[in-house]
Design a protein around this nucleic acid. Structure first.
Lengths: 254, 254
DNA sequence: CGTTTCGTTGATAGTACTCAAGTGGTGTGG
DNA sequence: CCACACCACTTGAGTACTATCAACGAAACG
């Protein structure tokens, strides 16, 4: 089946989510050993269950969170307006109050079972000040997150519903996907509402989009948040920013 | 006239753009004297005219730009899609290739007469590594920029045309506004097209919105990009994120 | 097995986009 | 000084897309 080969070769060439095992959500944070060790001493490991909120008030000493595993999100919920999922955080990401605009109802929420390291802002700053290496590492990571935030704004602002959804699937595929014979398998940690809020779409509209994607053979729903993407290259074609997503979300060598 | 007093008192309480002179666009970068000096030695001062593009390719050594005066923007222009203004940069902001997603047609453009300091990425990194103070300063600044980028995504994603435009006017008023008897005066450095691209709106739609705003007495056009906001508090009321904008764009004590 | 919740789908309305025509200002050349 | 072309902006009519509301169906939970 030449189609199959096309899919696989595209995957391999384009830094695809070629994780051998189904360890998607449990994939661990960046290479242990280097700057992580210093952090660990000063940090408290925190485990959060799905939907659990992590304190983000700067009333207390502002906490810095470093994601070890799982997926978190920043959400805003103005009284009148709909909830919004503003940003997703993956293992290795740095989350801090000052990175987030103080919109009404702003909260940091675990989207699935999550482990984070928490340390006081002062400790984090001190660590960075003490180690140029640490500091450079954090700078690089924050630059990445900034680029992702800007890309997300671009997706929300310039793409239609189908393209936004395709872009999210590509992002999740690259981050959480596992290669299986049928395609790319993902344990999507986002509920339908989460996805709608992240893509700035109505849940009803999103439902129509997913139906269309299923009809086009881009998506298969296996229940329980288990999803398979049978046509990865077609999906890349459906997202105008596929190349950019790959640059920002593909597992990187360093 | 009690109405007038209400306007002014709101202005004063809410960290309004109470710059006494018409020096809006020329307002200089953060307090000179501290960490700026070290930068200056290694940086080249670059002056850019309106519409001039600054190199953002990482083909060369990636350049770091630090805005001294004026206004810059990151724009993307996919072939099929419309141009997008993804982000605005004000004096003090740090711009670097790694902060920006590599979308097709991505460029850094001066929106009015601008002065920036340019230095090689390596030099910038070395400076940060050498001085914890510098590093902390840059971290803080980048955190601010990240918060602004996230806020912009929120505005694009959750607000309608009128609310988006009101939000932009508040932002520009806080950044570039000068208090005059008639209200807040702004030399808007953005063309109509720029504004539309920044707010993810069609120029035609934006024109309708501005007409509505003029009719509501929120806006007066004096020609040549010269604009007056006669009713600042009403404008704040028209933007659901006014409070957040004030926190991120008001001139800060430090 | 009923209840609740979530997802789907249809009908309708609202908002912004597209295309096109018209208006006003500006600069140039006769 | 006027005529003309040019450009940016405005405005109207029609279209496309998404939101809203409501009804239905399916899965999860007690």
């Amino acid at each position: 089946m030449p189609g199959e080969f096309a899919v696989m070769s595209t995957l391999l060439q384009n830094a695809a989510p070629a994780v051998s095992q189904h360890q998607s959500s449990q994939r661990s944070a960046p290479k242990a050993g280097e700057p992580e060790a210093a952090l660990r001493e000063h940090a408290t490991a925190v485990r959060a269950r799905r939907r659990q909120r992590l304190a983000l008030d700067n009333a207390q000493a502002d906490a810095v969170y470093i994601v070890r595993s799982g997926l978190l999100g920043i959400e805003a919920a103005s009284p009148g307006k709909h909830r919004q999922l503003l940003e997703l955080f993956y293992p290795g990401d740095i989350i801090r109050r000052s990175l987030v605009p103080d919109l009404p109802g702003i909260t940091l929420t675990a989207l699935n079972v999550t482990e984070v390291w928490r340390l006081p802002g002062r400790s984090f700053d001190a660590l960075l000040a003490a180690s140029p290496e640490q500091s450079a590492h954090a700078h690089r990571r924050l630059a990445d997150q900034h680029a992702r935030a800007t890309l997300h704004a671009s997706i929300i602002g310039a793409l239609n519903g189908d393209e936004r959804f395709a872009s999210l699937l590509v992002e999740l595929g690259l981050r959480l996907g596992a290669a299986v014979p049928a395609g790319i398998s993902i344990d999507v940690p986002l509920s339908r509402t989460d996805i709608a809020d992240y893509l700035a779409l109505n849940p009803d509209t999103l439902s129509r989009i997913t139906s269309r994607f299923k009809a086009r053979g881009l998506l298969m729903h296996l229940g329980g948040g288990h999803t398979v993407l049978p046509a990865w290259d077609a999906l890349l074609g459906a997202s105008p920013v596929a190349t950019t997503l790959q640059a920002l979300h593909a597992p990187r060598p360093a």
